[in-house]
């Protein structure tokens, strides 16, 4: 399946800002993080198609995934 992955803040360093990736069917967010070499504990906010979700989430074709380290502001 093909998913669109967006990385933010420090996760961009040495990786990319936005890219389409082809993943095996039935991949989970956890698998994607392993592929990206992002430790699960560092990926504090993950948004799939606009909804915050957890690493166990199973991905689907054409999902848009945004991954953030811990951030805040105001």
């Amino acid at each position: 399946m093909v998913v669109e992955v967006k990385l933010f803040a420090t996760f961009r360093e040495g990786r990319f800002n936005e890219r389409e990736l082809e993943l095996p069917e039935e991949s989970s967010l956890s698998d994607l993080l392993k592929y990206l070499k992002i430790p699960e504990k560092d990926a504090k906010i993950i948004i799939v198609n606009g909804l915050a979700t957890s690493v166990e989430h199973k991905l689907s074709n054409h999902d848009v995934i945004a991954i953030f380290p811990p951030i805040a502001g105001g």
Partner: peptide
């Protein structure tokens, strides 16, 4: 703390732009 020790010092408050946008 990940936010006060890392996130805010590295990018300042406008690091929120993308997160709030992606949250719709």
């Amino acid at each position: 703390n990940d936010v006060t020790g890392k996130g805010l010092p590295t990018y300042g408050t406008s690091v929120l732009v993308n997160l709030i946008n992606e949250s719709g």
